[in-house]
């Protein structure tokens, strides 16, 4: 077992983990952050995307020990009372159906907009190609991300 200290959604905790524990398993099982789901076992689907020190990471592609000393934000820590503009845009644009890909999609979109504040449709599509959705056909997701981009630019 290895001792790690990770800040998750603003709360720091020190835990003993097996070295093979994936970050997503640590988040779900040790930290109870079950808002981040697992959709595959080959790091393709992106459902488990979180922010590590502000950058989008597939939390199944990182070991928990690699997150030692770092700050993790999950979809559960994204909103501070009020919804984050990306969350609100997903609701307004009907950018989710079953909602299973949504946490990862939202976190990937947050990082995309950090890097590209005014993305074209194509830039959104390519920026989110590591996150699979089986319900929406992506059109409303793309629209939501661009709406959120406009709102974030207006706010900054």
């Amino acid at each position: 077992m290895t001792r790690i200290s990770v800040t998750v959604d603003g709360v720091e905790s020190t835990d003993e983990v097996e070295p093979r524990t994936l970050l997503v398993q640590y988040l779900r099982e040790a930290r109870g952050r079950t808002g981040t789901p697992v959709g595959c076992d080959t790091s393709n689907c992106g459902a488990c995307t979180v922010l590590v020190d502000g950058r989008a990471v597939k939390s199944c592609a990182l070991l928990a020990v690699q997150a030692d000393g770092r700050e993790v934000t999950t979809v559960q820590g994204l909103s501070n009372g009020a919804l984050h503009p990306v969350q609100r845009a997903f609701h307004e644009r009907h950018a989710l159906q079953c909602g299973y890909c949504t946490p990862g999609m939202i976190m990937a979109a947050v990082d995309l907009l950090r890097e590209t504040p005014d993305p074209t449709e194509q830039e959104v599509r390519e920026g989110l190609e590591g996150n699979l959705c089986r319900c929406t056909g992506y059109q409303n997701i793309v629209a939501a991300v661009r709406d959120a981009a406009a709102e974030l630019r207006g706010a900054s």
């Binding site: 079950t34 808002g35 789901p37 559960q76 609701h91 009907h94």
Partner: peptide
Amino acid sequence: RRRKEDAHLITGQTTWTDN
């Protein structure tokens, strides 16, 4: 109408069976 279903899904307050 915007969906009533969305609020818990966009905030991760979900009850998937594996949770």
